[in-house]
Design a protein around this nucleic acid. Structure first.
Lengths: 252, 252
DNA sequence: CGCGGTGTTGACATACCTCAATCTCCGTGG
DNA sequence: CCACGGAGATTGAGGTATGTCAACACCGCG
């Protein structure tokens, strides 16, 4: 029932997301040290957990490929999906202070991660200021992202929430070199709904409505954004894209 | 229009919240170094901003006394209150990665903060592992807290949200040596509502209802929790208090 | 003593949830 | 290869928690 652990040495150099991950901003020399600290690669199959809520904290995980959801569990067993994580992102940072994971991370598809023993990483960061700064930056970005989601959940209507999430996913894929307009959502409707504070039915209805309005084309988990500007406007984020570069495919 | 800046040297030793603040876990010697890095004290009056959204980032702020709200501003001008900060907490961490503050911090009452130039703090942390760890811990705790709020906004009913917020404030006051059952809320109803993703009217109605149900007594911003256990149960957090130590004052 | 900002209360509107039926997709076994 | 079954997704009808709008009350301050 446990996950595969591959001892093959990790090489950041041939990793497609090294510019988004911990090595960002590090010299080749420092990257070597980082690789030396990285224990191994690990494969996690869809539905398996990288760590569970309450597990003791010893490693951070860097996503090489695939995707994860993270979620917290309330006293009454209710869970809240807090993030959908893509390659290059670091999982487990919220466990530092308590020495135990307050959330769990579950693979949405077969995924591969680098295992980073935090004690050794901490030690290395103490000697390598650029790494230290990168760790701060990752913490800080996570805080910023969470604030954006608070805004979504606190103030936005259901359609705005879903639009914002699609734009968010789209731009994150774009940064990773994938299409910003065609992608496959690796998570089921229930997870999207949970993440957005809605029900699966509402999410489904919205997908249908967006399609009718010509904003997207959707078939199950395949999504094509046909009007990126229109969707961005709905999401209320006219900023994350340079509009001049985007063709608007008007429909109605 | 700018805020007072008092050059009197900062002394963590006589600060009531040093155990919750950056000095936590540091040796006396390291605390001395931390004080040397701390620029000055600053007084912020009610309604004034410690920093605004978009301001360039150079300092962190440690709250000595008083309280703040932090909020993010969307493209359409809509704002979302993201946190109510109490003495001992650090403000500004989310600005690290972007070099600019993504949120603003506004004093809810006349407050006093220590100004921490981040460049120097970073430098010191590079030399003092205990400080490094404390910074990680603070980042990590903030992430955890945000996840809790996501749960509130995503899954909880209005009454549960308000109850959870009151319990949260109560326990944070308790940790600072104040009463956990009687306190003055330094923020107006509109801020509470904004924070909880509700309207001021709903919050007001809930305060009235809680009072009718014997959970609290409330007069404007003065709050007395008369049934801490009942309120905790409503909040769904039977964990943050040791129930045996709490008298339940049944009413109806 | 009056004024303005803050808080309270009421009546009504509505966005989203709930419950339930149906459909689609896809893996499994015959 | 096809039939079956089950999970996920869609669609519909109706209910409800919370928002909206508006009047009023309270408190602090000039």
């Amino acid at each position: 029932m446990r996950m595969d652990q591959i001892k093959s040495p990790v090489r950041c150099g041939n990793c497609s997301v090294r510019r988004l991950c911990l090595p960002a901003g590090l010299s080749d020399q420092d990257v070597d040290k980082l690789e030396a600290v990285t224990k191994k690669k690990q494969i996690v199959k869809a539905g398996e957990r990288l760590y569970g809520a309450g597990d003791s904290f010893s490693n951070l995980f860097a996503i090489r490929s695939g995707s994860f959801k993270t979620a917290v569990i309330a006293a009454d067993g209710d869970t809240q999906v807090t993030h959908f994580a893509l390659p290059g992102e670091i999982l487990g940072l919220d466990a530092y202070s308590g020495r135990t994971h307050p959330s769990y991370a579950e693979a949405l598809e077969t995924s591969s991660v680098c295992v980073l023993p935090f004690a050794r990483l901490e030690e290395l960061a103490q000697a390598v200021p650029a790494l230290q700064q990168q760790i701060y930056a990752i913490f800080s970005e996570e805080l910023q992202q969470e604030n954006e989601i608070l805004m979504l959940l606190g103030k936005r209507s259901a359609d705005t929430r879903l639009a914002a999430m699609l734009i968010n996913i789209s731009s994150r894929y774009a940064r990773r070199g994938y299409s910003s307009t065609r992608f496959v959502l690796s998570m089921p409707r229930t997870d999207i709904a949970n993440y957005l504070g809605l029900t699966a039915e509402t999410v489904s209805r919205l997908f249908s409505r967006f399609q009718k309005e010509g904003l997207i084309r959707v078939a199950q988990r395949d999504v094509e954004i046909t009007d990126l500007i229109g969707l961005s406007e709905l999401a209320g984020t006219h900023c994350s894209f340079d509009e001049s570069e985007l063709g608007r495919n008007s429909v109605s």
